[in-house]
Design a protein around this nucleic acid. Structure first.
Lengths: 201, 201
DNA sequence: TGTACATCAGTGAACGCGCGTTCACTGATGTAC
DNA sequence: TGTACATCAGTGAACGCGCGTTCACTGATGTAC
């Protein structure tokens, strides 16, 4: 039990640990199912210290949601900036619509793990919405002309939500596959080599 | 304060009132934010009687989610069976992607209001998944050949989730409009008269 | 038709428990001399 | 370099409160006679 005074940098680090622990727990169990006590314990601290970092649990919720989604949005933006459009699109879409993303709830996209819960908290929405715009912009850079980025993002988010309520892996994978096809081919509006079985259109 | 004995039919009716009250409250505030006491009060009863109808709150959750979504699925199936394919599609899609649906959370589609919360409760998932299949089948009947019903459903669900986290009505409506365009034209794969500005493809 | 009784849907007090938040305290550190 | 002190990140007991669940009870009803 080491209990030493920390410098300002160390306090910021502790705060970051709290945010990360909360992020995982909220996504795994839902915001209301996770108490301040459990968060602080997961961060290796005791509950009383929480209010030295945040004015309330709600303030933490807003920060956790915004920070986590902002990081994902920044990753997308970077991928979109870097390479060829269709390769970037496939990289983003395939990692998002991967069964691994569906399974790893505790580090899954906040839109799919906490979307409706965050929507009920007005103070958390601006931070989320800002990242939604960034994500749509990133997709816009990758998508072929005429495809709508907001629609593509909707498809991706909805597919992961649906895959998580599916009661069999087969259904989940069918949903992810269908969404993949709709967003980045072989269906219309998309570059990339045509799928051998993709003669549907 | 009338307190009279009810027949079996009346008990079933009471049970239904509980399910309906819970459905509204869960969607509005989240499952964990609504207590048995609040549900029973909303149904005009006292909390103690709850366990004469359900073995636990979790059992109610599963029933509420399944029943509410099943009703929506049945409505879709009926619309899809009735009229012309493209009219049915527009009817389903336009009511789902209507700002009114986004606003009326307490009677909104369970997939968009409680999706992630229900996904965390294994015992609630089979009931939900069954209705997802029914909804996809209904869409399949309406969609033009080659369009994927699961992808369309994903787009619709994701769009409503995103519209609810949006921080301005403009963003919300842009998301809904984009999703509408992607699912039922004027973009590819869809019947319906071409949009005057829809020369993108 | 009239009376006595069994049924059982719904009541409300009580249970142990964990919640979000407050606060007096601790003690390792950085700083002043 | 060595000592005394102020700082303040983190501790842990305590607060009022509402949770999910249990249970002895009530009293209007349907039924038997």
């Amino acid at each position: 039990m080491l209990r030493m005074r920390r410098t300002n940098d160390q306090k910021a680090e502790t705060r970051q640990h709290i945010v990360e622990a909360a992020g995982k727990l909220f996504r795994q169990h839902g915001i209301d199912a996770v108490g301040v006590d459990a968060i602080m314990h997961a961060a290796g601290l005791t509950h009383g210290g929480f209010y030295g970092h945040f004015v309330s649990k709600e303030a933490l919720v807003a920060e956790v949601a915004a920070a986590s989604l902002a990081r994902a949005a920044e990753r997308w933006a970077q991928i979109a900036r870097e390479g060829a459009a269709d390769a970037a699109l496939r990289r983003i879409v395939e990692s998002y619509l991967d069964p691994a993303h569906v399974a790893e709830v505790e580090q899954g996209c906040v839109l799919t793990t906490l979307g409706p819960e965050v929507a009920r908290r007005p103070e958390a929405r601006p931070g989320i919405a800002a990242s939604v715009r960034v994500m749509a912009d990133a997709l816009e850079r990758c998508l072929p002309l005429g495809a709508d980025a907001m629609a593509a993002l909707s498809t991706m988010v909805g597919a992961v939500v649906l895959a998580r309520v599916a009661d069999t892996p087969e259904l989940a994978e069918a949903i992810l596959g269908a969404a993949k096809g709709a967003v980045c081919g072989p269906l219309p509006l998309c570059g990339g080599e045509p799928d051998p079985e993709g003669e549907v259109l």
